[in-house]
């Protein structure tokens, strides 16, 4: 008898604790929900928590746009202290504003100290982070923008790129980095500075333009144009006719 009583108590408390069933999405708000039927969206107000089997999101306020009915979500706009995680797409992030297009799998994060980690690739910015998971296209725009992938670290005001979408870990196929002051790229043991840098996976070349500086093993070479072959890790630096290529070698034994 005592055993059955314990079982019943466990069942009751379990149901109370986990009100969401498997496969369901639960949305909790502190200050209500406003449904706009004509405009086809609902506004989730204050301290919003969205939880499903593979996705969770927290934010101050959230707008959910739907197609046919409330369940048929096509766009989510979360504003204020946004924090989200998706185990299905192996991504998580935070920022002041999140815009998520469910059908075209596009994520936009706006605001200071925005951060997105997708398949091990970390993107940070004080402006915007935009990733299209279907096409693999992304851009990071604004102050303190950076990208940390497997073997490469990039800092620049504007980082455009394309991921390879057919691999589990995001492999970068193309990169275009611009910064009106200077952008920074670190690949293996080589550090590179330039106002404009382009990387193409198909030719395995990083192309550096304007105020180029390459540092490796205590050797600094600066010029106007440079290339780094990522296959054999060799590099070349050229200069315009007016300037000369400058080489600084620091002997660490001295």
């Amino acid at each position: 008898m005592k055993f059955f009583f314990i079982i019943i108590c466990i069942l009751i408390f379990t149901k109370e604790l986990y009100s969401r069933n498997i496969g369901e999405t639960e949305i909790l708000t502190d200050d209500g929900i406003e449904v706009f039927q004509k405009e086809k969206y609902y506004l989730l107000k204050k301290n919003v928590k969205i939880e499903s089997d593979t996705f969770s999101l927290k934010g101050d306020n959230v707008e959910v746009y739907f197609e046919k009915d409330l369940y048929d979500i096509k766009k989510i706009v979360a504003i204020g202290n946004v924090n989200f995680n998706s185990s299905e797409y192996n991504l998580n992030g935070l920022g002041n504003e999140l815009i998520l297009y469910t059908e075209k799998e596009e994520i936009i994060i706006n605001g200071i100290q925005s951060k997105l980690i997708i398949n091990g690739t970390e993107m940070k910015s004080d402006g915007n982070i935009n990733v299209n998971n279907l096409t693999g296209e992304f851009f990071i725009l604004g102050d303190n923008s950076s990208l940390l992938a497997q073997e490469i670290y990039i800092i620049g005001e504007k980082i455009d790129g394309i991921f390879s979408s057919n691999t589990e870990v995001n492999e970068i196929k193309f990169l275009d980095v611009k910064d009106k002051n200077i952008s920074y790229i670190k690949s293996d043991d080589t550090e590179m500075y330039a106002k404009h840098a382009i990387y193409k996976k198909e030719i395995d070349i990083i192309e550096l333009k304007e105020d180029v500086k390459i540092i490796r093993d205590g050797e600094t070479i600066s010029g106007d144009y440079g290339t780094l072959d990522t296959k054999d890790n060799s590099y070349k630096v050229k200069s315009n006719s007016s300037n000369k290529v400058k080489v600084v070698i620091i002997n660490s034994d001295e």
Binding site: S19, R20, L28, T29, D31, G32, I33, L44, L70, Y71
Partner: peptide
Amino acid sequence: FNGKSKLII
């Protein structure tokens, strides 16, 4: 919908 609200999809 007012106050603490719960939406289940």
